[in-house]
Design a protein around this nucleic acid. Structure first.
Lengths: 203, 203, 203, 203
DNA sequence: AATGAATGAGTATTCATTCAT
DNA sequence: CATGAATGAATACTCATTCAT
């Protein structure tokens, strides 16, 4: 007859489930993830899971959205701290952000997005609108500012800020595939990357 | 006048099946690919497919191996043409190779590898041994030669030739995900990349 | 007014399924028994069957174990009633037990065991430990007691109680094979058997 | 250009195939026997096998018929040697025959018959007509003769000669199932059986 | 007569989803 | 709200049989 010490508020449930799902998807991939396992991991029944998420696909999308938001916020925060010079911004907050990616669970979600993205076009659209295009836009703004301020010389990097990001993507994926065969010191590689780029475009 | 139900064409069959499989895997991904569909696409019965490939997984591995070999050969050929200076090599054959990737079917296999790789460790091992590590080794040799010849200044790129490759990977993946929302001129981006890098390390 | 698609009857289900399976296995043999047919016969979906029995083989083993237990218990009860003299025990409970076998569904399971046993060594082990060796041991004890009590003369039957059982086996199998061609009055044959044996070993 | 020293006469082929089939069926059982494996074992192509045997079932029946014939002949020979007294016949040729069964490959065919028989009614009919009923008839004749000659007292064994055979069947089957758990000295058991029976019916 | 490539019907098993309780 | 028993569509794989060569 003991009343439970922690009454679970129903508001938390969806998030708890999404978190369990995120770990499971990350570990096993979409197809190999069983809804029942997610439910078990969340300490919840299958039926309840389906109360909050109509389908497995809904759940997947919720996971992506949920766990990308923090990184989104982090991007926003970085943007706001742009009273730094472009060079200092890139060497500072950007590099830090870049280094954090290959170590965070986000790296698994990146692989998931690449693997499953094409099957979920609306998810890709959301992702493009809310994450990728904003990220690219922000980087472009930083580089443009660097050029305007005379820190950087004009270069194709203004058109392709992607080049600033691609090693981040690389260092998120590479270890997930080839870790057993090759260690990659992603921190140092990303530092080298930033050095190289800044060296190439410095005025 | 009905076309014969049985045809004998032993030699070609495995390759025909593998090709059909490659397109199907590329389109749908591993899990969503039905063996029967591959067979149909190859104009062959399920049973015959299984005569040549013991399991769906075998088929998948064969596909990867089969369709990566040409690129491997291409890499080898590039290596052999290294009577060019390092700079010319990078601006010439390497850039050409890089540009070809995002346009060839290989780009789909790259996405497949990222998506399915972790489920097939032996495939990853083969891939590492036969493709990735050799590719990286080759690039490192080129850069080292450039340094030795006084073309390049010493730099962390010697340790991380990956940086030379990561935009190639990026330009292979990005359009598969975000093509509907953003066109990316991969040719020009890769040219910009090469420019940037050479600019950064020139002696 | 349609009957409900879902019914809850957790407790009974495994037994109901096992019974349906037992009849199907008995009729068709292991290989020719389709899981789906068993499910249909039990008025249950394939999926539910698999909820209770991991594989077809598990189901088979469960059937054997389930439907042998009653006979096992019967054997035990017989053993316990051994305040009878050995002769009376054989003429009474043992003969009755023997006669019951060729008429019960057990006869089908006996044929199944002979047919499928070698493919399921762990089942054979269980069967040996729980049924056969105990049965033989019990019979040996009865005969030894008969000798000790001066009812029987010492004989090789003490070493081979199997001889007491083999006509039981025979009368369980023979009709299943040759019923259309030859009726065998198993009751009278088993009575004759008991007469013969007792006549041979009476002191 | 060497001409083969042994030209295979086509007459032998069916028998060779049947022999290969017999060993395979005996080892694996009907369902688990693959036609291709039989062909390979016979050193013949699948196609040729099908030239001689229309179906797998035909092949199975041919096997049973082929390999039971020798035992049939042996029975016949035994019958013909009945210038012996009934007692001596049972102690001599019959016991020898009985002892040989559990050691010959025939024991495997016996298990096969029990397992697969009910699925092949015509085979059972043939088997009944050509083997079982003749065998039983012969035994009955021997016992009747013993009674007529004053060797045996009249008994139910005249009606149920099966009782003379059932331990033979038992000793053929038992070791195939429980050999790993219990050795059975079939020779001694069968001797004990004959002793017991003769003791029971001696005049 | 002989081959073995080719066929496709047949089946065990899984798992997202539903709904009676 | 919450459960988990129940469903059944979906799919990899096998193997007896056929037939072009």
């Amino acid at each position: 007859m003991a009343e439970p010490r922690f009454q679970r508020r129903k508001e938390d449930r969806p998030d708890e489930i999404a978190e369990a799902a995120m770990y499971t998807f990350a570990e096993k991939g979409y197809a190999a993830t069983k809804v029942e396992e997610v439910a078990k991991r969340a300490g919840v029944s299958k039926g309840l899971l389906y109360l909050y998420f109509k389908t497995k696909e809904e759940l997947f999308k919720a996971v992506i959205r949920n766990f990308v938001k923090p990184h989104l916020d982090s991007l926003v925060r970085i943007t706001e701290s742009t009273d730094l010079s472009a060079t200092k911004f890139i060497r500072g907050p950007f590099l830090e952000f870049a280094k954090s990616i290959p170590k965070s669970p986000a790296r698994k979600l990146i692989r998931l997005m690449i693997a499953e993205g094409p099957k979920h076009p609306d998810l890709l659209e959301w992702y493009w609108d809310n994450v990728v295009s904003r990220g690219i836009g922000m980087l472009r703004a930083v580089i443009d500012k660097g050029v305007a301020d005379g820190e950087f010389r004009p270069s194709a990097l203004q058109e392709f800020p992607h080049l600033l990001v691609s090693p981040v993507l690389f260092s998120a994926i590479f270890p997930q595939l080839f870790e057993p065969h090759a260690k990659l010191d992603t921190d140092r590689m990303l530092e080298a990357h930033v050095d190289l780029v800044l060296n190439a475009i410095k005025a």
